[in-house]
């Protein structure tokens, strides 16, 4: 630990005072957009490394959907009678629930990073603040992509089949992931708004249990009590589930579909939902991040 100067001048002995022994490293020339993309990638990479380094996250993320597929197929499947069989009905619901839950990770991870001080480290660097959020939500997207793969494999083993086209299948997957991605921005915003990571977990459960269970994800909703049925019809998760079912071709004749506009136009409903989430929470989150030092 003799000299701490920058490269090029190892061991150069110091002029104390006005002149320094070695120069400050200057950034490479670059455009604002190029730097933003680079920062976004570095932040994403950091979150991906965390998935690899903290296996609990990955194991939990992958095991939970497997458990849900098996549990619902064999426990509830025996009791719920829908045309085409319960497995076919269920899978889109499990997909939707899992990716929406997966997106909550952005909330708890933001809260945790704030608490740990890593966000403060980033904020002393000349990086783009929005890139931190891009990296965060990208990380969720990757985790969700992985859990989709695992769920589809498990679903296939218990008899789920895509009964549409390749295009329909890809569109269904894209819609699920995109909705979850948009939801991640909402969660990232909440993650910066709470005082501790524990709070965000509780908030997530309070919001997500009704959102995913009072929907058509696991049961047909036409027999629900009226208030719950109305909630379910206007619940964006219902529209997401319905869209995925249609795109995967899991809607055999006789499958009940609600009369509400949202049930008749599920894909459009989901796209509107995604747009609203992004239009509202991307700028809000970026502004919230920029204002972290103002409170």
């Amino acid at each position: 630990m003799s000299t701490v100067g920058a490269s090029g001048m190892p061991g150069a002995s110091g002029g104390v005072g006005a002149s320094r022994a070695s120069a400050t490293l200057q950034p490479e020339p670059g455009t604002a957009i190029g730097r933003f993309l680079s920062d976004g990638w570095i932040a994403t990479r950091r979150n991906l490394m965390k998935i690899i380094r903290v296996p609990d996250i990955l194991v939990f993320t992958l095991l939970q959907p497997i458990m849900f597929v098996l549990l619902f197929t064999y426990v509830f499947g025996a009791a719920i009678d829908v045309p085409g069989g319960y497995t076919s009905f269920l899978m889109a619901g499990i997909f939707a629930q899992t990716v929406v839950f997966g997106s909550t990770y952005s909330g708890s991870a933001m809260a945790q990073d704030l608490k740990d001080g890593i966000i403060d480290r980033f904020r002393t660097l000349p990086m783009n603040g929005a890139a931190v959020l891009v990296g965060r939500t990208n990380g969720d997207l990757v985790i969700n992509g992985l859990s989709m793969l695992v769920m589809m494999g498990t679903g296939w083993l218990v008899g789920w089949r895509v009964e549409s086209s390749l295009g329909g299948f890809l569109a269904g997957v894209a819609l699920l992931l995109l909705f979850a991605y948009a939801f991640s921005w909402l969660m990232a915003f909440l993650g910066m708004s709470v005082r501790s990571p524990e709070i965000i977990n509780n908030v997530s459960f309070l919001v997500l249990f009704p959102l995913t269970f009072i929907s058509n994800a696991f049961v047909p909703t036409e027999n629900l009590p009226t208030p719950l049925r109305i909630f379910s019809e206007w619940n964006p998760v219902s529209a997401l589930v319905q869209s995925a079912r249609e795109l995967f071709g899991n809607v055999p004749a006789g499958t009940p579909v609600g009369d509400a506009w949202t049930a008749q136009n599920p894909i459009l409903t989901v796209l509107i939902g995604i747009a609203v989430l992004l239009i509202v929470f991307v700028p809000l989150s970026i502004a919230k991040f920029a204002a972290l030092g103002k409170k």
Partner: peptide
């Protein structure tokens, strides 16, 4: 101003360098 606990020592320093746009 913490370091990232899940990165190695080298990765942490490399990340900071990248975020300074070196």
């Amino acid at each position: 101003a913490a370091v990232d606990e899940n990165l190695t020592g080298f990765e942490n320093l490399e990340m900071v360098g990248r975020l300074y746009h070196l």
